[in-house]
């Protein structure tokens, strides 16, 4: 651990042991099975203006899947600026975005460090790409804006063992939440945007009962046996433009249109999240 300035917690999992009585076995048995229709996203709660000291802020919560031990996604985003650039930086005719995404140390099953690790940096880069397409950057020359997203709860099933499920799929859900919450915070901060951008995830999953893999939106990795591929889309609904596309996984070669279908479903998920965003922003003013 390179962080020597703080007293760090123990490295590694800090999950209390789950005793194997009847109830827990039942929970384990009922694992899997998606409780929603394949084209429905989970309920989400979005609120702006939660951090008084920031120029703009927002809080996003996505409900859990309803079982005990499964946490939802909780994100808090603060926007600082527009403010002047540091003296060392060169002249910029447009606003300079800097995005930081950080998991809280307790957000996931595997405890996170205080410093940003490569996956968090990766999320920050994707978030910046998604927001840059939505911002009218030349309204604010010579300025910078900091967008900081804290992931308070990381949308993970704490009862599955470490080997089950791949954490890399969780990053997709986290990114789509980050995009939606950052968009709300930017609007709250009064930074010019061409549209509200929201994130959506679609995945190609295969379950034991099904003959062929199917496409679902807003997937929870622990609810499916296997995720073959997933894509996270940042989409501007009134412009009908995609500002960021992150695709991961392997598609079966049999269906050539599968990729397009997956992207379309991702856009659909994003459009649904955007309805929440629009509602929330309307409440902010009204």
């Amino acid at each position: 651990m390179s962080d020597r300035r703080r007293i760090n917690g123990p490295v590694g999992a800090t999950i209390p042991p789950v005793s194997e009585d009847g109830a827990s076995r039942e929970v384990a048995g009922s694992r899997g099975g998606r409780s929603r229709p394949p084209n429905a996203i989970r309920k989400m709660y979005l609120k702006t203006g939660v951090t008084p000291s920031a120029s703009g802020s927002a809080y996003l919560e996505i409900e859990t899947s309803g079982r005990s031990g499964v946490s939802g996604l909780k994100l808090s985003c603060t926007v600082h600026g527009p403010r002047s650039l540091p003296r060392s930086s060169p002249f910029s005719p447009h606003i300079i975005l800097s995005t930081h995404v950080k998991y809280a140390p307790f957000a996931t099953r595997q405890r996170r460090g205080y410093l940003r690790d490569p996956s968090e940096r990766d999320l920050g880069t994707h978030l910046e790409a998604a927001l840059r397409g939505a911002i009218i950057a030349d309204r604010w020359p010579k300025s910078g804006v900091d967008i900081i997203v804290s992931i308070i709860e990381g949308d993970q099933d704490r009862e599955t063992s470490k080997t089950q499920g791949d954490e890399s799929w969780d990053l997709m859900n986290a990114l789509s939440g980050c995009i939606t919450v950052a968009s709300a915070a930017l609007a709250d901060a009064g930074i010019d945007c061409v549209d509200t951008v929201a994130g959506g995830v679609a995945a190609l999953v295969s379950d034991k009962g099904d003959a062929s893999p199917s496409i679902v939106i807003d997937p929870i990795p622990s609810e499916h046996d296997r995720i073959l591929a997933a894509c996270c889309i940042a989409y501007l609904p009134t412009r009908d433009e995609v500002t960021n596309l992150w695709f991961k996984g392997d598609l079966p070669a049999s269906d050539t249109e599968l990729y397009t279908k997956l992207v379309e479903k991702g856009i659909q998920a994003s459009a649904k999240a955007n309805r929440v965003l629009v509602e929330c922003l309307g409440e902010t003013v009204g």
């Binding site: 939505a134 609007a187 010019d192 945007c193 061409v194 549209d195 509200t196 501007l236 609904p237 009134t238 412009r239 629009v278 922003l281 309307g282 003013v285 009204g286």
Partner: peptide, 8 residues
């Protein structure tokens, strides 16, 4: 009336 970014 109230406008949000991207509203016509």
């Amino acid at each position: 009336s109230v406008a949000i970014p991207g509203q016509l």
